[in-house]
Lab assay of single mutants.
Amino acid sequence: KTRWTREEDEKLKKLVEQNGTDDWKVIANYLPNRTDVQCQHRWQKVL
């Protein structure tokens, strides 16, 4: 388990703006080493 970088956080924010929060698998495709569940959790709990 690796810490999220600032770059990953920024990328996640942009991806959510573009794609919404309905399909985390699509978002995870753009973030290597991150699963859809990790992306969703990061968005809901941290950002």
Results as ranks from 00 to 15, higher is better:
Gln40Glu: 15
Gly20Thr: 05
Gln40Ser: 10
Arg42Phe: 01
Gln44Phe: 07
His41Ile: 11
Thr2Ala: 06
Arg42Trp: 03
Gln18Asp: 05
Asn19Cys: 15
Val37Met: 13
Gln18Ala: 13
Glu10Ser: 14
Ile27Tyr: 03
Asp9Arg: 00
Ala28Met: 03
Lys45Leu: 09
Thr2Cys: 05
Thr2Asn: 03
Asp22Gln: 07
Asp22Leu: 10
Lys45Pro: 02
Leu31Met: 10
Asp36Thr: 09
Val37Leu: 12
Glu8Ile: 00
Thr35Ile: 06
Lys25Cys: 14
Asn29Ala: 08
Thr5Gln: 03
Leu47Thr: 07
Glu17His: 12
Lys11Arg: 09
Lys25Ser: 13
Pro32Trp: 04
Glu7Cys: 06
Lys1Asp: 04
Trp4Gly: 01
Arg6Lys: 13
Lys11Phe: 04
His41Met: 13
Gln18Thr: 15
Trp4Pro: 00
Lys11Gly: 05
Lys13Gly: 09
Thr21Cys: 07
Asp23Thr: 06
Lys1Glu: 05
Arg42Lys: 03
His41Ser: 14
Asn33Ile: 04
Ile27Leu: 05
Glu8Thr: 02
Leu31Ser: 02
Gln38Phe: 00
Asp9Leu: 03
Arg6Leu: 14
Tyr30Pro: 04
Asp22Ala: 10
Ile27Glu: 01
Thr2Asp: 08
Asp36Ala: 12
Lys13Phe: 07
Glu8Ala: 03
Arg42Asn: 04
Asp36Glu: 09
Lys14Arg: 12
Asp36Asn: 10
Arg6Glu: 07
Asp36Pro: 14
Lys13Thr: 06
Lys1Ser: 05
Gly20Arg: 04
Lys13Ala: 12
Trp43Ile: 03
Gln44Cys: 12
Trp43His: 07
Arg6Gln: 14
Gln38Gly: 07
Asp9Gly: 03
Pro32Gly: 12
Gly20Lys: 06
Leu31Ile: 09
Lys11Leu: 10
Lys13Ile: 07
Arg3Cys: 15
Val37Asn: 11
Gln44Gly: 11
Lys13Ser: 11
Val26Gln: 11
Gln38Ile: 05
Thr35Cys: 04
Lys45Asp: 12
Lys11Gln: 04
Thr21Gly: 08
Arg42Ala: 03
Leu31Ala: 01
Ile27Val: 07
Arg6Cys: 09
Trp43Thr: 03
Glu8Trp: 00
Leu31Pro: 00
Trp24Ala: 01
Trp43Pro: 03
Ile27His: 03
Val37Gln: 10
Arg3Asp: 09
Gln18Ile: 14
Arg34Gly: 01
Ala28Tyr: 00
Arg3Val: 13
Arg3Lys: 13
Ile27Phe: 03
Trp4Arg: 01
Thr5Cys: 06
Leu15Lys: 05
Gln40Lys: 07
Arg3Glu: 14
Leu15His: 08
Lys14Gln: 04
Gln44Ala: 11
Cys39Trp: 02
His41Glu: 13
Arg3Asn: 09
Val16Tyr: 02
Gln40Ile: 08
Thr35Trp: 05
Arg3Ala: 06
Lys45Arg: 11
Gln40Tyr: 08
Tyr30Asn: 15
Val46Pro: 05
Gln18Phe: 05
Val16Ser: 02
Lys13Leu: 09
Thr35Gly: 04
Asn19Gly: 08
Val46Asp: 15
Asn29Thr: 14
Val26Asp: 10
Lys14Met: 15
Asn19Glu: 08
His41Asp: 08
Glu17Phe: 12
Arg42Cys: 02
Thr5Asp: 07
Val37Pro: 03
Lys11Cys: 06
Val46Ala: 09
Lys45Ile: 11
Asp22Ile: 05
Val26Arg: 13
Glu10Trp: 07
Lys45Met: 09
Asp23Ser: 13
Tyr30Lys: 15
Ile27Asn: 02
Arg42Asp: 02
Glu10Ile: 03
Lys25Glu: 09
Asn19Trp: 15
Trp43Gln: 04
Trp4His: 00
Gly20Gln: 09
Val16Thr: 03
Val26Thr: 12
Lys1Thr: 15
Pro32His: 08
Gly20Trp: 04
Glu7Val: 09
Thr21Ser: 14
Pro32Val: 10
Ile27Gln: 01
Asn29Cys: 10
Gln38Met: 15
Asn19Arg: 09
Asp36Ser: 12
Lys13Met: 15
Lys14Ile: 05
Glu8Phe: 00
Asp23Ala: 11
Glu7Gly: 08
Trp24Lys: 02
Glu8Pro: 00
Trp4Phe: 06
Gly20Met: 06
Gly20Val: 04
Leu15Val: 13
Glu17Val: 10
Glu10Ala: 09
Lys13Asp: 02
Thr21Val: 06
Gln44Glu: 15
Arg6Ile: 15
His41Asn: 15
Lys11Ser: 08
Thr21Tyr: 11
Val16His: 01
Leu31Asn: 02
Asp36Trp: 11
Lys1Ala: 12
Gln40His: 12
Thr5Met: 02
Asp22Ser: 11
Leu15Met: 14
Trp43Gly: 05
Glu10His: 11
Asp36Met: 09
Asp9Trp: 01
Leu31Glu: 00
Thr21Leu: 04
Glu17Cys: 03
Leu12Trp: 04
Trp43Leu: 04
Thr5Ser: 08
Pro32Asp: 14
Tyr30Leu: 14
Lys25His: 11
Ala28Thr: 04
Asp23Cys: 11
Val16Trp: 01
Leu15Phe: 09
Gln40Cys: 14
Glu10Asp: 14
Cys39Gln: 00
Val46Asn: 12
Trp43Glu: 03
Asn19Tyr: 10
Trp24Leu: 01
Asp22Arg: 10
Gly20Ile: 04
Glu17Arg: 14
Lys11Asn: 07
Leu31Lys: 00
Leu31Tyr: 11
Asp9Val: 04
Trp4Met: 02
Glu8Gln: 04
Arg34Trp: 12
Val26Met: 15
Leu15Asn: 04
Lys13Cys: 05
Thr21Lys: 09
Leu12Gly: 00
Glu7Gln: 12
Val16Leu: 04
Ala28Trp: 01
Gln44Pro: 06
Val37Phe: 10
Arg42His: 14
Asn19Gln: 15
Lys45Glu: 13
Tyr30His: 13
Gln44Tyr: 06
Asp23Pro: 02
His41Leu: 13
Trp4Lys: 02
Glu10Tyr: 12
Pro32Ile: 07
Thr2Tyr: 06
Lys11Thr: 05
Trp43Val: 06
Val46Gly: 09
Cys39Asp: 02
Val46Lys: 07
Asp22Lys: 11
Gln44Ser: 10
Arg6Asn: 09
Gln38Asn: 15
Asp22Phe: 14
Glu8His: 03
Ala28Asp: 01
Gln38Ala: 14
Val26Phe: 14
Glu7Trp: 06
Val26Trp: 10
Val16Glu: 00
